[in-house]
Design a protein around this nucleic acid. Structure first.
Lengths: 254, 254
DNA sequence: GAGTGGTCTAGACCACAGA
DNA sequence: CTGTGGTCTAGACCACTCG
């Protein structure tokens, strides 16, 4: 066996070997992999090749590298986010939208937690474009965890002229969440739109979500309309490797 | 300035520098970048560092590396795929769903083209799960281009007991596309579901879509229901760096 | 063949976490 | 302090494309 160039590069082959071992349980979920020099020796290559192979797996979200400590197999399986059900529930049952994230996480055996912070600010560009205005907005910034693993950031933006002085500006927005508050204020949301794109994380996202620069996030820009007016824009940032987005809709009679 | 370790690695800094030059037009869309040794000299680092920086940009889809030739700035801007509009149109106007892809591509000034191939096969696992059956299916495999750039693969799967011997099995499925044929056969699709996940491309996807192993694809599994029965599953594979998914839906009266 | 990018080695040094 | 992973250099060789 040549020590160099095969059809595909050695580091990819080694990545595949290790991926295999993870999938078949040789390296169990949550366990620590052998250290790089050890793997290099076992596999007969330079450590830099192993390092590159592990970077591939880490970028896929299959392993988590804790620098100075070691490389572990990722614990969190993919989380399903059903966009439509959460909001339709929110309109009917109390606590639908708020409860949706909780249910998603509990479904996988983890413990959900959210931190909310509320403040006023100028809207970022994407949001201003949706509103068609640079006017001040109320921001509800949420950071979400599955058993201490940060798994999502979601910032809701609401025009200050709607939200000012209402329960929307409270950290605890009350029963049924802000969707109910909107309805009470005469802005019942009747139509939703979401736009999903995939991109590298910003520095802030890298920090909070504990990502690598080569990871990808799915950015979902959610806009809620009351009639024709956009009344709420929510920007969800999900590490792409642990979420699956789901949307459902009806086809109106032809 | 130290030749080594700054706050972030040199290859990331260089990636940022080059990203900047692309965004401000120093390297125009479609133009060829200087060769790696040249950049290495200009920036005062080893070629391997430049190589790594360019790999970052290539993985983001910002540049396209044509091995043996050079590295060029990507030409195709993000393409918007509106999931709901295409099918609602398909139900009303003739040729909605088929025309949707064309419109998406033309909107960006490129020329759309699709190749279709039809055959029968056993359903892949994801599809069998949706149908709840391993029974034979008719496959409509589509490969889509924007002016000769491959931009999407989409395989539709239909249970053979529905499609056998109908126009659905023809390459040209007639006016209004297969959605219309379903309706004529008594399987009007009334509900849709899509599940979107992000993952590395398979070898086949790498080959057709001309991807790098470190690229990401968005896989959208679309299921069309006639009443409660899933009658069509379509798996869309989109290079994540040039698509934006869009979904819209109404909130039923509380 | 000449010119391009991709990978590998060997060795070095750095950054970070934890005892 | 020790042990972990991350990056860089220098040099080499390979694979691919085009003339």
């Amino acid at each position: 066996m040549s020590n160099k160039h095969t059809a595909t590069s050695q580091y990819r082959l080694i990545a595949s070997t290790l991926r295999e071992r993870i999938e078949n349980g040789t390296y169990a979920r949550g366990s620590t992999l052998p250290i790089e020099p050890k793997l290099a020796e076992e596999l007969g290559v330079d450590r830099s090749v192993v390092n590159r192979a592990l970077a591939v797996l880490a970028n896929e979200g299959l392993v988590y590298v804790h620098r100075g400590v070691g490389t572990k197999v990722t614990e969190i399986p993919p989380i399903l986010r059903n966009a439509t059900a959460r909001y339709i529930k929110a309109a009917r049952e109390r606590d639908g939208a708020r409860g949706a994230f909780d249910a998603e996480i509990r479904a996988l055996g983890f413990i959900p937690r959210s931190d909310v912070e509320v403040y006023r600010a100028q809207p970022p560009a994407v949001v201003a474009e949706e509103f068609g205005s640079e006017d001040e907005v109320v921001v509800r910034a949420r950071q979400m965890y599955a058993s201490e693993h940060p798994v999502q950031m979601a910032n809701s933006y609401i025009p200050a002229d709607i939200a000012a002085g209402t329960a929307i500006e409270q950290v605890d927005s009350g029963p049924g969440g802000i969707i109910s508050r909107f309805a009470e204020l005469g802005f019942r949301q009747t139509r939703m739109r979401e736009r999903a794109s995939v991109r590298p994380p910003t520095d802030e996202e890298i920090e909070f979500l504990k990502l690598r620069p080569d990871h990808r996030v799915m950015q979902i820009v959610h806009t809620g309309f009351a009639g024709d007016r956009p009344v709420e824009v929510c920007v969800h940032i999900l590490p792409a490797h642990f979420w699956i987005g789901e949307w459902e809709w009806e086809i109106p009679e032809g």
